[in-house]
């Protein structure tokens, strides 16, 4: 289990994280979201001992990551991992093997072969996605109890993403591992993660379904007898967040509670109308948009 208690960190006068509390149970995949500069990477660095917390503590099963033996169970895959001009996938494994003696070469080779990476070619000659694939292979070869993935899906093609997600799920199930993934691919996180948290304004502001609950928005799909247009929705007093019109079919996201929106939509006389749950991305955007507008 990962426990974060009262974690705060600043860069000079700029406070990045303040009083962050978070608990992640073992055997879970947690999504970590937030806008650029929200503090996701800083949180990862604090969680892995790269930064020493100015305030608060992080524990992995009661042990601090500032102790090097604790980090034997933790693997951070950074957004931009280290490699030199001469590093090949083969030499990279050799480096990681010195720090993680239990790293499994067979697993590594299997993933490298799956992705079709040439182990003799230098990493600098690879595309960003291919480099990511090489580091994914390292991560699963080490098979740590705690896997922290920063910008996890960045640069990966759909096939690689599929394989990556399957491997993560298998790793969690087989080893009761804990995985934390930060990504901007919110829809992907929503379908894949057991839970997710959002970092905004220096805090973990929403966790899991609480994010949807704090968003005052609803989504409907409708069919009309006559071809509809956007003007009729605004004329009905609806605040349109998003509207997709395909012939006589409409899927729309509207600002306001169900009680406010539903009567206005009914006044437009749709032939059929159903409420659909908001997805994570919409909730995320709405939540941040409101906060930013409030600040402005």
């Amino acid at each position: 289990m990962i426990e974060i208690k009262g974690l705060s960190h600043s860069f000079g006068k700029h406070v990045v994280l303040q009083d962050v509390d978070l608990t992640v149970e073992s055997g879970k995949v947690l999504g970590l979201v937030g806008i650029n500069g929200a503090g996701k990477s800083t949180l990862f660095r604090l969680m892995t001992g790269i930064y020493k917390p100015q305030q608060g503590e992080v524990f992995y099963d009661g042990k601090s990551p500032l102790i090097d033996t604790t980090r034997q169970d933790i693997f951070l895959l950074p957004d931009d991992p280290y490699f030199t001009a001469q590093t090949t996938t083969k030499s990279m494994f050799k480096l990681y093997k010195t720090f993680y003696p239990n790293a499994n070469k067979a697993v590594y080779n299997e993933i490298i072969s799956y992705f079709g990476l040439d182990e003799k070619k230098p990493l600098r000659s690879f595309s960003k996605g291919m480099r990511r694939q090489a580091y994914i292979a390292i991560a699963f070869a080490i098979a740590p109890k705690y896997l922290l993935l920063d910008e996890a899906f960045d640069g990966l093609d759909p096939l690689a993403r599929k394989m990556f997600k399957e491997r993560i799920r298998k790793h969690v199930t087989e080893n009761n591992a804990t995985v934390i993934i930060s990504s901007h691919a919110l829809l992907e996180l929503e379908e894949f993660c057991d839970d997710y948290v959002m970092i905004d304004e220096k805090h973990v502001v929403a966790s899991g379904s609480a994010l949807e609950e704090r968003v005052n928005m609803c989504r409907y799909q409708m069919a009309f007898v006559e071809t509809p247009n956007e003007a009729m929705f605004t004329a009905a007093g609806l605040k349109v967040v998003n509207l997709k019109i395909t012939g006589r079919f409409v899927v729309g996201v509207f600002d306001g509670s169900k009680e406010e929106v539903l009567p206005k939509l009914q006044s437009l006389g749709p032939a059929v109308m159903d409420e659909i749950a908001l997805n994570f991305e919409e909730a995320f955007i709405e939540s941040l948009d409101k906060r930013i507008r409030r600040v402005e």
Binding site: R45, T48, G49, I50, D68, T69, T70, R71, Q72, I74, F75, L76, P78, D79, D80, P81, Y82, T84, F99, Y100, D150
Partner: peptide, 21 residues
């Protein structure tokens, strides 16, 4: 010099070996 490059430190300092070592 590789420890004066910010990009490298995420990797180096997350390894299970203390900085002193």
């Amino acid at each position: 010099s590789s420890f004066r490059n910010k990009r490298n430190l995420d990797t180096w300092f997350s390894f299970p070996l203390s900085r002193e070592k």
